[in-house]
Computed example of a mutant assay.
Amino acid sequence: MAVPLSSAALSRVVARLRAAGCVFAEDEAELLVSAAGDEAGLEGLIRLRVEGLPLEQVVGWAEFRGLRVEVDPGVFVPRRRSEFLVDEAVVLARPGAVVVDLCCGSGALGVALAEAVSGVELHAADVEPTAVRCAWRNVGRVGGRVYEGDLYGALPGVLRGRVEILLANVPYVPSGAVCSLPTEARLYEPKVALDGGVDGLEVLRRVSGEASGWLVPGGHLLVEVSERQADRALEVFSGDGLVARSVGSEEWGSCVVVGSRPLLRNGARSVLCGS
């Protein structure tokens, strides 16, 4: 229940947020007021936000593809640009598809896909215990399961060769560029969810290298990268035997690379899309 505030009191909240560098101070003030149970609670939320904690971690949720996804402190905050990756996956996924969300964080990508495609069998995994606990609350509400561990090592063996859609929101920021990320990310999100190694593609290579063993013939791996990394990511996917393509969105400022396990058909290699 929102805390009742006078217009003058609300203006003071906005001023404090703006002074702390919050660009959308008015919108944030409204969310903080809505999330607080009382004035003391509101003061606590404001203090956390002013100290730099991401807004989503302060209020406990993020909006993602029209859904309210729970986000705990210390968990990677789902970016709105990643909605484009889900949009691409929705086109490829059939009703009842087996879906895996690797590096799941809060589980936002997998949950959004499960909400958009009927009957999805969702499995999610992350190496961070805090993320796994958070993801259980989100993934569980769509009937999915969450596992803790390093990439494919977290998944039950029964999923080998059964995965139709593999979402992997891998970290892709080069190690040398992590220090230039916004303070919110550097201080309050796990480094393992941000740092992609020297060129930003180290985790992507690991995911791509084992993808064919987990995908069904005609199954798809989707990852997000920066536009400047796309060509190299395509080479990695192709080198691992995947039929690779990239697609970008100016609206979202997002670049997605899709790798499909070839399907043998009359002796020729082809890709089964969305069937």
Score class of each variant (00 low, 15 high):
120 V>T: 02
118 S>G: 14
157 G>Y: 09
112 A>K: 02
152 Y>D: 08
188 Y>E: 00
84 F>I: 02
160 R>W: 11
178 V>W: 12
84 F>R: 02
189 E>S: 05
171 P>L: 10
167 L>W: 09
161 G>F: 14
117 V>L: 00
107 G>A: 00
167 L>P: 09
95 P>A: 10
154 A>K: 07
105 G>P: 02
172 Y>G: 08
116 A>L: 01
151 L>A: 08
179 C>V: 15
144 G>V: 04
155 L>T: 12
105 G>L: 06
92 L>E: 13
178 V>Q: 12
163 V>N: 01
169 N>T: 13
171 P>G: 10
136 W>R: 15
111 V>Q: 00
164 E>R: 14
87 D>K: 13
108 A>D: 04
91 V>G: 12
111 V>I: 01
81 R>I: 02
83 E>F: 04
85 L>N: 01
96 G>Y: 11
113 L>P: 03
173 V>M: 11
106 S>C: 06
144 G>Q: 06
144 G>N: 06
140 G>K: 01
106 S>I: 01
129 P>K: 10
115 E>A: 08
127 V>P: 07
93 A>Y: 06
131 A>W: 00
159 L>S: 11
87 D>E: 15
151 L>N: 01
169 N>V: 13
81 R>G: 03
146 V>K: 07
170 V>A: 05
161 G>L: 14
162 R>Y: 07
135 A>D: 03
148 E>W: 03
105 G>E: 05
90 V>C: 08
107 G>R: 00
99 V>N: 11
122 L>M: 00
171 P>T: 11
94 R>M: 02
133 R>I: 03
185 A>W: 08
116 A>I: 00
82 S>R: 07
138 N>P: 00
167 L>Q: 09
190 P>S: 08
129 P>C: 06
